[in-house]
Design a protein around this nucleic acid. Structure first.
Length: 706
RNA sequence: GGACGCAUAGCUCAGCCUGGUUAGAGCGCUUGCCUCACAUGCAAGAGGUCCCUGGUUCGAGUCCAGGUGCGUCCACCA
């Protein structure tokens, strides 16, 4: 919220005046011209005239320059090259010598005539008063505008001229642009490359000198005697002045922080010496940083690396998301919405915070740290802890498990979890390779909670209690799974994983096992699959049946602790796809029936022989490959099951209708690809079957009610 | 003034690049369970005009154009 002062500058020939608008009237003492836009008709005839600078009486020209905005103020701009960057450029274009009117303490200097010695604030007041006295101040308008202030002391920044060192940027920028264009360095996510190009293609020469105490000193030297002084720039300090042999003094300025930082990828490896480290580790693989550092640091490391090492400093640049506040706003000190990580860590735990960040680190998107997610991660650490506790309770006092001599003798449950583990290892490894940290975190979560805990731990309880070979096998699988999942988890939850692993470590049979998880090998999947495709499908069916029975239990109101009897009626497809020697449902259920019974709390799971009349006192549920019948609990009122079943019926009908509609469309039949068509037909048949079953079930129920 | 990103369940977010299963997860909510690793838990359930308009297509949450809202960056600011 400043003011805009309109000041009248009289023409030297007495033919009237021209009015300029300025927010900083005190700088008029350093004016060297008045400028208008060349296309501005109002002033076209006046360009070239001399103007008398008020208060000082100096004559300055009226010039025309494209940089002048005709709309602003009066369309006439006073030019103060020594105290305004834009004016400096205009002045340079017109060959105007800058006149500095302030010293380095922002006090008016001898060029300011009568105002010499005043501070700029006092000077502004006096200038305004004096202009008013001479009748040259036309008006003052309120004018909100942004001014540069010091970020520490909030003092208004005063632009001024000073000699500085520059690096010519173009020869550095061009190779750095090319390196990203041709893929020697890749940004993740890719679109940040636009930001990089945008900056690099419009980059200005780089002012590298700073008037600070700390930093690399500028390698420039001045002779104490020569007049005028000529700088000598040299990598190694020269002994004496090459011209007069006099003593030399190094320039007092230091390099811009980013200049020094730009050397980081190789200077930390011993450069300029040809050290083994430099040879081994340059170029590096990955730089992780925030997008706001792309200009400051990434671009400069690229330029320096290509210049001095002749190669890019890193192959990949991963740009992290920004953590925003709960309203999606960027956290800034001035806004006061900064979250202290230590505070969140205090509340949720370090691992939970780290895991949450990984989970939310979707490429190309900033993230909001939500309490809900953090709490969920904290619950996850608890889950892991308890899973480990279960394992240790079952390992305590046991010898170090050894791999079974014949893997194929392991139960399906054991081989299945080992297969899921390998699948998780593959998925997580791929996700990390592609910097998809959210996918990696999600997959680990899914494996640990919903495959390892929900299924394997439950299914391991029986053999672990049984003793003998079954127990030994389950212990080995338990250790193998836990060991590997902890290694997978370690980058995301370093503390809890290390803590548990240290306790588990004595049970891990591995030659030259690392003393710490942090430096242990990242897991790799086994070379051969643990189970056949048929077995994998069988286990999928087990999971499907278990889920369906659990839903049915709730539907007919079984108490969670109450055992229930279920029957499976075979479907033709199952007989064909069966894994057993003996075709049929029974051979398959012989393998996984026990698992389903445990997880669906069944007192019995029986096969209904083909062509057998199903029990009437049961709710029936169609799957693709079999029909499940769950006996009514004692005192069950069939009325209860009706609404849910009807809902299912109408849902299924909706889906079926959609498929039928599609199939009835001749254009779909003509233009859809064959696979899609076949799939739709299959699906449609399946849904129709399901409808038939559901309808029959509904009728049965209604009969029971009646 | 220029550019980029985002918009999907009450909340926080996946899915979109490469169009076709019943659009998913966690939290929250409802119901029932202290089942001997874990009630920070277990089981089940409800909850979605995928921001709007138009286009392309047999078919659009997904591709294209325009719009709206939110966020961010750059430039300018005499």
């Amino acid at each position: 919220d400043g003011r805009l002062y309109y000041i009248r500058y009289p023409f030297a020939d007495g033919s009237g005046s021209i009015t300029v608008a300025t927010t900083r009237p005190e700088t008029m003492l350093g004016d060297t011209a008045v400028a208008v836009n060349p296309a501005d008709q109002r002033y076209a005839s006046m360009v070239g005239k001399q103007v008398r600078l008020p208060l000082l009486g100096r004559e300055i020209p009226l010039i025309a320059d494209d940089a002048v905005d005709r709309e602003f103020g009066t369309g006439a701009l006073k030019i103060t090259p020594a105290h305004d960057p834009a004016d400096f450029e205009i002045g340079r274009r017109h060959g105007l010598a800058p006149i500095a009117v302030m010293d380095e303490h922002a006090r008016m200097n001898e060029q300011a005539g009568a105002y010499r010695g005043l501070t700029r604030e006092v000077c502004r007041k006096r200038v305004i008063e004096d202009l008013e006295g001479e009748g040259l101040l036309e008006k003052i308008e309120p004018h909100p505008h942004a001014i540069g202030i010091c970020s520490r002391c909030e003092t208004v920044v005063e632009p001024m001229l000073s000699p500085q060192w520059y690096v010519r940027i173009k020869p550095l920028a061009e190779p750095a642009i090319a390196a990203v264009r041709d893929g020697r360095t890749t940004f993740h996510p890719r679109f940040w490359e636009n930001t990089y190009f945008g900056w690099m293609e419009n980059v200005h020469d780089w002012c590298i000198s700073r008037q600070l105490w700390w930093g690399h000193r500028i390698p420039a030297y001045w002779c104490v005697k020569c007049e005028p002084p000529e700088p000598i720039v040299a990598a190694a300090p020269p002994e004496k002045c090459p011209r007069c042999g006099g003593a030399l003094r190094q320039d007092q300025d230091v390099l811009d922080t980013w200049f020094s930082s730009a050397l980081w990828p190789f200077s930390t490896l011993g450069w300029p010496e040809e050290t083994p480290d430099l040879k081994t580790y340059y170029p590096t693989s990955l730089l992780i940083t925030g997008f706001d550092i792309i200009f400051f640091w990434v671009a400069r490391m690229m330029m320096m690396g290509l210049r001095f090492m002749n190669d890019v400093p890193f192959r990949d640049v991963y740009i992290t998301p920004l953590v925003r506040d709960q309203f999606g706003k960027k956290m800034t000190k001035s806004r006061g919405n900064v979250v202290d990580p230590l505070d969140i860590i205090e509340r949720y735990g370090t691992d939970a915070v780290r895991f949450t960040l990984a989970q939310l680190a979707v490429q190309g998107r900033d993230l909001i740290l939500s309490d809900e997610r953090l709490a969920a991660s904290r619950a996850f650490t608890n889950k892991i802890w308890n899973a480990a506790r279960f394992a240790m309770l079952n390992l305590e006092g046991a010898p170090q498990p050894v791999p079974p001599t014949d893997i194929s003798k392991l139960r399906l449950a054991e081989r299945w979890i080992l297969d899921r583990l390998d699948s998780a290892i593959r998925d997580v490894t791929r996700a990390i390779d592609e910097y998809e940290f959210n996918l990696a975190a999600l997959r680990i979560y899914q494996f640990i909670w919903h495959e390892f805990c929900d299924w394997y731990i439950e299914l391991a309880k029986e053999p672990l209690k049984a003793g003998g070979e079954a127990q030994a096998a389950a212990r080995w699988v338990l250790v193998r799974c836990l060991d590997r999942l902890l290694r997978l988890l370690h980058p995301f939850m370093p503390f809890i994983s290390e803590e548990i692993w240290q306790v588990l470590r004595p049970y891990i049979a591995e030659p030259d096992l690392s003393p710490h998880l942090a430096i242990a090998r990242f897991p790799e999947p086994a070379e051969r699959p643990w189970l056949s495709e048929d077995e994998a499908r069988a286990m999928d069916r087990c999971i499907e049946v278990t889920g369906a029975i659990n839903s049915m239990r709730a539907l007919v109101g079984y108490h969670p602790g109450q055992g229930a009897r279920a029957f499976l009626a075979s479907a033709k497809e199952l007989r064909e796809a069966s894994v057993g020697e003996e075709a049929g449902l029974s051979s398959e259920v012989a393998i996984w029936g026990r698992y389903a019974s445990i997880l669906a709390r069944l007192s019995a799971l029986q096969i209904l022989p083909p062509d057998t009349e199903p029990p009437k006192q049961a709710v029936s549920w169609p799957l693709r490959w079999c029909r499940i019948l769950l006996e009514f609990p004692a005192g069950f009122d069939p009325q209860q099951a009706l609404p849910a079943l009807q809902k299912k019926y109408f849902e299924t009908k909706g889906h079926l209708d959609r498929h039928v509609e599609r199939l009835n469309n001749p254009e779909f039949r003509a233009k859809a690809d064959k696979d899609t068509l076949a799939e739709t037909e299959d699906k449609s048949r399946e849904l129709a079957d399901k409808m038939t079953h559901l309808q029959a079930q509904l009728e049965t129920l209604k009969e029971a009610i009646a």
